[in-house]
């Protein structure tokens, strides 16, 4: 018996892969078949082509509006992560190490706070925001920054733990760099993996968000899909598949930058 005696038998490995693979992939395959239907029995790309059909443009307009809103929300949410969360985490790790535990507790708190509960508390706050800042969809990014917080925190903290922040900062300071230069030219490049992963996760979460937008009456991609689905179920299914594929590619990219591996070792 080799040292790897507790590794699964190849037959067991294959059996698990086939059963779980079927459960995961068959619904997706059936969904692809659904989007390719043409008439009662035929198959073609007619429903995919219809997305750009000018005669249906009016019916599909909410989707493009929602998609534009979602893209704006991604940008603002990523900005919240990169320009508000990340600098604060650097500050806490450099100057206030005693606050690290408290900060971690706050950052992970949204995990135990269901979005539907957050909505109950956000409703009065967004009434005020609607009267002062406006009812633009981009304002949702503040709420999304909170839902993204635990994921973003974990990725960035894994990067911070992997480099010696204090030494880097002191070395740069002793060479005469100001704090802005230290953060921008020394620390940020060293934390690139974590910042990248945090941004990509933020993009994936914002793209799929429905609960908060729908109950606060703001339009994003998901609320638009639900709206259009009432008349034309094909187009919303097609956009769902494309969003899924997009997120899959995003996460493959995160895997390539190596921060998932780092997180795996950490936890």
């Amino acid at each position: 018996m080799s040292q790897a005696s507790f590794y699964p038998h190849p037959a067991v490995r294959t059996a698990i892969a086939v059963v779980v693979g079927a459960f995961v992939l068959l619904p997706l395959a059936a969904t692809v078949e659904f989007t390719l239907r043409d008439g009662d029995t035929g198959h073609s790309f007619v429903h995919w082509a219809a997305i750009f059909d000018p005669t249906k443009a009016a019916a599909y307009k909410p989707i493009w509006v929602g998609l534009t809103n979602s893209l704006t929300l991604m940008l603002v949410t990523v900005a919240v992560v990169l320009f508000l969360l990340a600098p604060t985490m650097i500050l806490v790790n450099l100057r206030f190490p005693k606050l690290r535990r408290t900060f971690e507790f706050v950052a992970l708190l949204p995990v135990s706070l269901p979005a539907i509960v957050l909505v109950v508390g956000l409703t009065p706050i967004y009434l005020v925001i609607g009267r002062t800042v406006g009812t633009g969809a981009w304002t949702l990014a503040f709420a999304y920054g909170i839902t993204v917080l635990p994921f973003a925190y974990r990725s960035i903290q894994a990067s911070i733990d992997a480099v010696n922040l204090v030494t880097l900062a002191e070395a740069a300071r002793s060479l005469g760099a100001g704090w802005l230069t230290v953060v921008r030219r020394v620390l940020a490049p060293n934390l690139r993996g974590g910042l990248m992963a945090a941004s990509l996760i933020a993009v994936a979460v914002v793209l799929g968000e429905f609960t908060i937008a729908s109950l606060l009456n703001r339009q994003n991609l998901q609320t638009a899909l639900v709206l259009v689905n009432r008349q034309d179920s094909y187009v919303s299914v097609i956009f769902s598949l494309m969003a899924l594929l997009f997120c899959f590619v995003l996460l493959l990219l995160i895997g390539r930058t190596g921060s998932i591996g780092a997180r795996g070792k950490d936890r």
């Binding site: 059936a30 969904t31 979460v205 799929g208 968000e209 429905f210 998901q222 769902s240």
Partner: peptide
């Protein structure tokens, strides 16, 4: 990673289309 995030309305659409 992607499927764990893939809750939401898109998952409902996929299951309605699939079954």
């Amino acid at each position: 990673g992607v499927l764990a995030q893939f809750g939401g309305v898109m998952l409902a659409f996929v299951f309605i289309a699939a079954m």
